[in-house]
Amino acid sequence: MVIVEFLIKLAQGFGIGALALATGLLFGGIGRKIMARIQRRYGPPFTQNYIDLFKLFSKGSVSHGWAFDLGLVAGFAPMLAALMFLPIGPFTLLPSDSSLIMIVYLMMMAYLGMAMGVLASGNPNSAIGMSRALMLMTGYEVPFAAVIFSVYLFSKTGYLTQIVAQQAGGFMNWNIVKMPLGFLAIEIALQGMLGEKPFDQAIAPAEIASGPMVELGGKYLGFGMIQHSVGLFLETGIVVDLFLGGAPNFWIFIAKQFVLYFIVILVDAILPRLRIHESTSFFWKLPLFLGILQAVIVIIQGGVLNV
């Protein structure tokens, strides 16, 4: 009996993975279209990312040893694993374990895996890119943590499913209304997490020949694209669950995610790329201040439990 139930879960998990990948690539395609439109040109068809991915998987590629392969696979596998705990609209594959910090640390495992693979290639550009990515991570993870902890304090629970449940019932009940500063901070942090324009020093094509992806050929670049798009789906999904009150059905969930991604793309299209230490210190100034201010407000409103 357990095996049957396990197989169902496996199929559902596989479905969610494919779904997330599809929506992630779709968002990527639409994002490129929007970017083109902003620059007053037609831009590729929004299915372009699918074509790119398929072409990458059909192309020969170069590997630098088993650590390179293990690293790249370990780059996107934890992202897929983290998906299983994310409440997507009404449905969560494993609701009992959907703890927020666990998802954050699973994403960090994806970074660790990707870093190992990319650095195993031995190209200094990838090393510089990875060191920039890690420095950037210290930047945006701190306000992100401040916001997470204020949400913990506010909703007195670590389960994403319960956080979403608490926000049910109308717009006024969403956390974005109750914790506006938190939403602002996490929106800026989201810009960093997705590695979009002001904070994409890690993959700067001109300075460090696209940073970590310098040695990634056909299928390895494909794995990188999968990791990016699933990560895109995951991060926007988390922010939707935390602040925009989840969604009654899947399409509204996707719509809400796209709203967030749209903001990110707009900022991406306009702002130039910052230098690495400017972006880390930026993250420690305004967003962190907003996050901590939000947490203090929550504490003052009686969030403290001193159990």
Partner: peptide, 9 residues
């Protein structure tokens, strides 16, 4: 346009 020969066709 792509930055490195590995990624280019």
């Amino acid at each position: 346009p792509m930055a490195t020969p590995r990624q280019a066709d």
